[in-house]
Design a protein around this nucleic acid. Sequence first.
DNA 1: ATCTTTATTGACTCGTCAATCAACAAAAAA
DNA 2: TTTTTTGTTGATTGACGAGTCAATAAAGAT
Lengths: 188, 188
Amino acid sequence: MPRLGMEPIRKAALIKAAIEEIGASSTLDVTVSQIARRAGVSSALAHHYFGSKEEILLAAMRDVLTQYGLEIRAALLGLEDPAQRLRVILQTSFGPQNFRREVISAWLTFWVMARAVPKARRLLTIYERRLQSNLLFCLRPLTGARATELADATGALIDGVYLRTALSGDLPDGEAAVALIESMIFAR
Amino acid sequence: MPRLGMEPIRKAALIKAAIEEIGASSTLDVTVSQIARRAGVSSALAHHYFGSKEEILLAAMRDVLTQYGLEIRAALLGLEDPAQRLRVILQTSFGPQNFRREVISAWLTFWVMARAVPKARRLLTIYERRLQSNLLFCLRPLTGARATELADATGALIDGVYLRTALSGDLPDGEAAVALIESMIFAR
DNA sequence: ATCTTTATTGACTCGTCAATCAACAAAAAA
DNA sequence: TTTTTTGTTGATTGACGAGTCAATAAAGAT
C-alpha cells in the first residue's frame, strides 16, 4: 500500500497522537507503542521517522509551542493599547486552542523533560523569554518601574494555573483563569 | 550486625535518601536501588520496610508535608495581625527548610505522582486546602470580597514559583520569591 | 524489465528495574 | 539451649519497553 510522500503525514499523525496520548494517560510515561498505535502505525515506523522517543516528544513540544506562537502573533497584530495586548496574551494562553486537557498535560511532560533534556530546556527557555518580553512590553506603560517584577510574577502565575489545572481532575476553565490573573495584576 | 529497633532508623534514612536522590537526579525516575544505596542499605531492605517504591515516595511526600505543616503552625502561633500572618506563611513556604533544591524537586515528583496515584492526590489536596484556608484567613481582612479569588491566585503563584525554580538551574532565592509574591498581592 | 528508493512491520535484542526469595546472622524469648 | 523474632542481602524472576533488523511490497527511475 505504500504511497509516496507519507513522511510528513505520518509525522504529523504521530505528533498529534503523542499529545493525545499524554493527555489520555494518567502517568507521564507514555510508550512509543501507545503513541504509534494511536496514530495507526507500528512502533517501528515511529522510530523510523523520528529516531527516538525523545525526538517524538520534542517534536510534539515544538508543535505546541509553534501553534501557540502563531496564534498569539496573529492576535496581537496591530493592537497598540497595552491593556488590550495584555488581555489578548492571557486570552490566547488560556484560549480553547491551548488551554485543553491534552495540551496542559503535555506542558507537564515538557517541564519534567526540560530538567533532563537540554534540547527541551532550550525550547522552554525560548518560549519563556518571548512571553516575558511580551508581558513586559504591555506592563511597562501600565505599571512603570514594577513592570519587570510583575512580568516575572505573571509568568509564574500562568505556569501555576496550568500546573494546578493539570492536577485537578475537572475540565479547564480558561475564562476563570484569565479573570483570576487579571484581578491579581490589576489589584484593588 | 543486626541491632534491634532498626526499623524507624532505616525508614527515616530511606526517606531522607529518597528526597536527596530526587534532588540530585535530573530525571524524576529515581530507582529504589539508587535510594537504597544512598541510604546505605540494599534495595531488598527498602522493599522489606516499605513494601513498594510507591510507598517510599509517599512516605517522602508525607515527610515534606508534615515538616512544612509543623513549621508553619509554629511560626503562626499567636500571631493575630493578618498582614503579618501572610508574610509568615510566605516566608515559611520559601524559607530555607522548604525552599531547597531537593524539596523543590520532590514537589515536582509529587505533582506528577498525584496525577496517577490516588493516595498522593489526596495528600496534595489536603495540603492545598490547608494553604488555601490559611491564605483566606489572612486575606479576608485585607482585601474583603476579593479574598477568595486572591487566595486561589496566590496558591497558584506559589506553585508557579516552585515550578520555575525546579526548572531553572540556579539556586533558589527565597527572599526574592517572597518579595515577588507580596508585590503582586499588594499591587498599587 | 531491472534497479533503487520509500513505506512498513513482526520479530527480536538488550537493558533496566520492581519485586521476591532463600539464606544467613544475631538478639531475645522460651 | 533451642526457638523465635528481627535485620539484612545477593541472586533471581518477570515484565516491560526502547531501539534494531531483516524482510516485504509497491512506486518511480533507468
